[in-house]
Design a protein around this nucleic acid. Structure first.
Lengths: 281, 281
DNA sequence: CGTTACGTTGAACGTATTCAATTTGCGTGG
DNA sequence: CCACGCAAATTGAATACGTTCAACGTAACG
């Protein structure tokens, strides 16, 4: 194998392991979950990394499908486009999440995937991945779980879009982000929005203006604090109540009170009631 | 193997093959697609059939996940439920389609699945199915395509719910049904709605009343004829234009005119532009 | 033939959108 | 360092789309 093309290699002994799945902080969330050392190494051998600059495409609608992509660093959005040129954002992806699974059946990508930050992905050639499945049932099983999670996640979006008011939608959106950051070891209450208000609105089936109004409302009620794209969740249970649609807005949301809604456990691998109900991913 | 438990067996030589995938009219659409005779037989061995009466559950939210289900006869709806008890229908399933894939990751069903007709399903024990994948790469690959199609289908719903007006939504709904019936050898222009207006509205993020009004509007414009649940599509290209959002309603929709929208091919296994755009499944 | 579930239609209402004006933040150049 | 220009975000007022509420129809079934 050729030496690293990266400048500033810390030493000459830097080898493939140093940049392998085993050394990746996302290995408990990403594809190698549950694999042993040897298996991880086998998976490593088919993966290469790739940097994607902010606002540039990872892939585009119609591109031939060759690989899945795991986000290593950064964030992405994926969207469809209709004949009139309107876009619908399907989701925002962060580290450890897989992109491109919707392209398997048609062999062409069905979405555009755009980096929201300067990002880095692991390129996973799909035919080789499928070949590995035969030798590595654990990998296959986990892959199926990942696809199933993707389906669940989209069902949650369907619930949001089909059944919720603007305020509920935005609350559900924040809760979802909160939980995903918590899973990655980040704060569930303080994080940055990586996307514009317009992107959020598009994703939630609202306009940018409506999103802005929901933010203003929740700020006024002391549920969140937002400066630019920095979000602080001040009252998560109020957010949960709003998303669940059991918050009569006559109640003072800032008053913490025993609630019917079970507080969810940010780190539990088990699904909570709220997740099951589509409020969380 | 025991003799058939069914009454009225036409003869004593009726064996397992007579009720196998090889003999099933859905084999080109369902799981055994692409398998050879031997492989199909292996798949058969893990499958049993089950009848589900109209309005009864195939599975319920929270049920332990043991099997996937392929619809053999009849129709189903699947829906999620939120804390307030509101339901959101995720989809309607017809013959040859697979149910339960959203349960793989959590090992519990995430939806209720209810039969809209007296129906029959093939019960596919999931652990055994996964075991087969190791020996039958074709089966595995097709399964991945099926899951990927499920993801695509849900992305289409997201597009409908996030981006379309009531009229577009209903048009997209009809087009989707039309195409799926066509794939099964039925008429793309005459079919029965198996669900109530309320179910349609729920699925499309509308009320029953709105659906009713859209039907009335399209009838008045000569695009469809509807009597009870019998639908006849009189002007499919108008329907396509409406769904695509390129139909200025000032134009007389009943006048057939050259359109930017490519007429889609009902039977092509290839994805058309419209499908890709989320208007079709 | 009444009962019930499902569907249609009309009118008033409400939520989110549209359109427009302003504000804020940030990068660039004078 | 401030001025400028641009993109993103906020806010307000008018409008529109679909909902809600209510009354009426229609078909299936005992």
């Amino acid at each position: 194998m050729a030496k690293s093309l990266q400048p500033h290699s810390s030493s000459g002994v830097e080898n493939s392991v140093a940049r392998s799945c085993s050394a990746c902080s996302m290995r408990q969330i990403c594809l190698p979950t549950g694999l042993n050392e040897l298996e991880t190494r086998l998976l490593d051998q088919i993966i290469v990394r790739k940097k994607i600059a902010r606002d540039s495409y990872l892939y585009r609608i119609g591109d031939p499908f060759t690989s899945l992509y795991a986000v290593r660093v950064g964030h992405f959005k994926t969207y469809q486009e209709n004949l009139a040129g309107d876009r619908q954002i399907n989701g925002f992806q962060m580290s450890g999440e897989l992109l491109g699974m919707d392209a398997i059946s048609s062999a062409r990508h069905q979405c555009d995937a755009v980096a929201l930050d300067d990002s880095e992905v692991c390129v996973i050639p799909y035919p080789q991945l499928e070949s590995l499945f035969t030798e590595m049932p654990m990998l296959m099983r986990h892959f199926h779980r990942v696809m199933s999670e993707e389906i669940m996640g989209e069902q949650n979006v369907i619930m949001i879009l089909g059944n919720m008011y603007a305020e509920q939608r935005f609350a559900a959106f924040l809760i979802n982000l909160s939980r995903r950051y918590a899973l990655r070891g980040y704060s569930p209450t303080r994080f940055q929005l990586r996307m514009t208000r317009e992107d959020i609105g598009n994703y939630l089936g609202l306009t940018m203006e409506s999103v802005s109004r929901m933010i203003a409302k929740m700020r006024k009620e002391g549920i969140i604090e937002v400066r630019q794209r920095d979000v602080e969740v001040l009252n998560l249970s109020a957010l949960n109540r709003i998303a669940a649609g059991i918050d009569s807005s006559s109640l003072h949301a800032s008053v913490e009170m025993p609630s019917v809604v079970t507080e969810y456990n940010y780190l539990s691998p088990q699904l909570t009631h709220l997740q099951r109900l589509g409020i969380l991913k």
